[in-house]
């Protein structure tokens, strides 16, 4: 069940939330819409769900033009950042909602709800109300509720944004496993690059209402098409005007070919990794090395060393234009 978005624009008053956005999301994939807040990714997701009407452009779901369909007829499952739990219903009735309004037989509903609660590990909470659940449990309930109607596509808007760090990590891994099991085409919005890299097959980077780049996590990390994408997807530092990943900087205590002198201005140990702040002819930069390297070079404040970036960002084939995936 693929999703195709073509030439979609959406304005809120003077604010251009989306400008001529085109994205293809292949059937069965797990795609992240990644970008800074206000970049248009949530709006794009809501346009796909039918919760917003685009000013122009087309949305196709499973090959069918859905642009003017109301949300209830698009066959999408939508999970909200703040859960949108039906507060007056038990967990069980929340999950059953989509089925009960379709007037499915009671027994079938009961069976399906039981399955889903098992899937999201909430069996023993069936008769509780949302207010009696933790944030993570509520979000799993919301997910089960969205899956109950067997949506063609599953859309998640910052699904873990309101949860604390530990729960967020757990749910991420769990979402990945769930997707491997259920295989429904899934799109989730996040502003957390780590989350996108860890969970998604494919990442759509968005900012200022436009798509900046589309690709697999590795492609984006290795071959970012712009400084923006590079700095958004991971730590960067600047050496001689070029962006470099701090872990792609080699450190030597003797001059080497292509290496330039630098002064260590500070050494910070962060467990296994060591952050080395550098002064290169008055410019500040930093490198990330292993503890072993740091000890081997006997790095300390004020020490003169030589550094050599391994690869700086080079323009690659992956352009900001959306890829055709079908």
């Amino acid at each position: 069940m693929s999703i195709k978005v073509a030439g979609v624009s959406k304005n809120f008053g003077d604010f251009a939330a989306l400008t001529d956005v085109s994205v293809d999301i292949p059937s069965g994939s797990l795609t992240a819409l990644l970008g800074p807040s206000g970049g248009g990714k949530s709006t794009l997701l809501r346009v796909i769900a039918g919760l917003e009407q685009p000013d122009s452009g087309v949305v196709q779901i499973d090959g069918v033009d859905a642009t003017v369909l109301p949300p209830q007829r698009r066959g999408v499952g939508f999970v909200f950042q703040h859960y949108a739990a039906f507060k007056h219903m038990t967990v069980e009735r929340n999950v059953a909602f989509g089925l009960s309004i379709r007037h499915k037989p009671k027994a079938e509903i009961r069976e399906r709800v039981r399955e889903l609660l098992e899937l999201v590990h909430l069996e023993q909470f069936a008769h509780r109300y949302p207010s009696q659940l933790s944030g993570g449990q509520r979000q799993r309930m919301a997910l089960a509720r969205a899956l109950a109607v067997e949506p063609k596509v599953l859309l998640l808007d910052e699904p873990f944004g309101a949860l604390d760090a530990q729960v967020r990590k757990e749910l991420r891994a769990w979402l990945r496993r769930l997707h491997d099991k259920v295989h429904v085409t899934t799109v989730f919005v996040t502003h957390d690059q780590e989350e996108a890299m860890e969970v998604a097959d494919e990442i759509v980077v968005m900012a200022d209402g436009v798509v900046k780049q589309v690709g697999s996590p590795d492609e984006l990390y290795e071959r970012p098409s712009s400084d923006f994408v590079m700095s958004f997807l991971g730590p960067v530092t600047r050496i001689g005007g070029e962006l470099v990943r701090p872990h792609d900087i080699e450190l030597f205590d003797e001059p080497e070919a292509g290496a330039r002198p630098a002064t260590v201005s500070r050494v910070t140990r962060l467990g296994f990794e060591v952050r080395v702040d550098l002064d290169i002819d008055g410019e500040e930069a930093w490198a990330q090395v292993t503890r072993g390297t740091a000890e081997h070079l006997a790095l300390e404040q004020g020490k003169q060393i030589f550094i050599r970036p391994q690869h700086t960002r080079t323009s690659v084939a992956a352009s900001s234009a959306p890829r055709s995936t079908s």
């Binding site: 809120f12 919760l51 917003e52 009407q53 109301p70 949300p71």
Partner: peptide, 8 residues
């Protein structure tokens, strides 16, 4: 919020 409101 702009939402369902306008659409029906």
């Amino acid at each position: 919020r702009r939402g369902l409101s306008g659409r029906f």
